[in-house]
């Protein structure tokens, strides 16, 4: 219980420090762009693959249920709603928690145990600002962008399946799909992804920055970053959906 309380205290201090450091100079824009590339571009293949497959599989598995009611024409709307509201933000966040979270946790953990972070400090470079702020900002910016991309490839996968089975045209598929989606849905999903991205980056940095006990500690930091980030993503998903439901006009 004591270690949990200490963890919450240290985590909160880390969070507060992020906001203090985020809005003061220097901003390390070059490092931020590099990290956006690392998080965004290097996750594209994985997001493409999983998004596309999810689109196809979800369409195939939804078809029999809708066919029982003679409502296969609703497939585009069902898939679009599911992807935009929930699947794309969650899939993207979970993939990023696994790929980016472990990568950041291991990188910073390794830098910690090999004294590279201390080397920055003694060179009068603020390692928190250079390492934590840039990486967390990068995940906060890139996870929503990846989420939108995931929606796109998911819909592409779904369309291919619908086209092959129901011979639907692309305009008809898009018109039907987006007829049930509102700006509020898209906005809520982007907002969710911003929170997911922020949490993934901050948790991975926190675990890496506080790694100890040599190479074993690096492994532990990477593992803890992924597990905690995924857990927090699900908690946030639940809370945000609840808030959205409450505030629905």
């Amino acid at each position: 219980m004591d270690s949990f309380a200490v963890g919450v205290h240290d985590g909160s201090a880390f969070l507060v420090r992020f906001f203090v450091e985020r809005f003061s100079r220097p901003f390390h824009l070059r490092e931020l762009v590099k990290q956006c590339y690392e998080v965004g571009c290097k996750s594209l293949f994985l997001i493409t693959l999983t998004g596309f497959i999810t689109g196809i599989v979800f369409t195939k598995q939804s078809r029999p249920s809708l066919a029982a009611f003679g409502a296969t024409s609703w497939l585009p709307s069902l898939i679009t709603v599911a992807l935009v509201r929930s699947l794309a933000p969650l899939i993207t966040a979970l993939i990023c928690a696994g790929k980016v979270g472990s990568s950041i946790g291991a990188e910073l953990g390794s830098m910690k145990v090999t004294e590279q972070i201390e080397a920055m400090e003694v060179s009068a470079i603020n390692p928190f600002k250079y390492l934590v702020v840039t990486r967390t900002t990068a995940t906060t910016l890139m996870v929503p962008a990846l989420m939108l991309y995931c929606c796109l490839v998911g819909l592409a996968g779904s369309y291919l399946n619908v086209h092959a089975n129901e011979a639907a045209s692309l305009p008809a598929f898009l018109k039907s799909g987006f007829s049930t989606i509102t700006f509020r849905d898209a906005f809520a999903s982007v907002t969710k992804s911003v929170f997911f991205g922020f949490s993934i980056g901050l948790i991975a940095c926190y675990k890496g920055f506080n790694a100890s006990s040599g190479t074993q500690g690096v492994g532990r930091a990477a593992n803890a970053a992924v597990v905690l980030a995924m857990f927090v993503v699900f908690i946030e998903e639940m809370l945000i959906v609840q808030v959205i439901t409450w505030t629905k006009p």
Binding site: M111, T114, A119, S123, A124
Partner: peptide, 25 residues
Amino acid sequence: FSFQHSALYDSMNVSENLEFPLRMN
């Protein structure tokens, strides 16, 4: 400060390791 295990930034080459503190300061 020269560290026991050198603490070189392992994502940077030698030149970048030297350039980094110089550019930052």
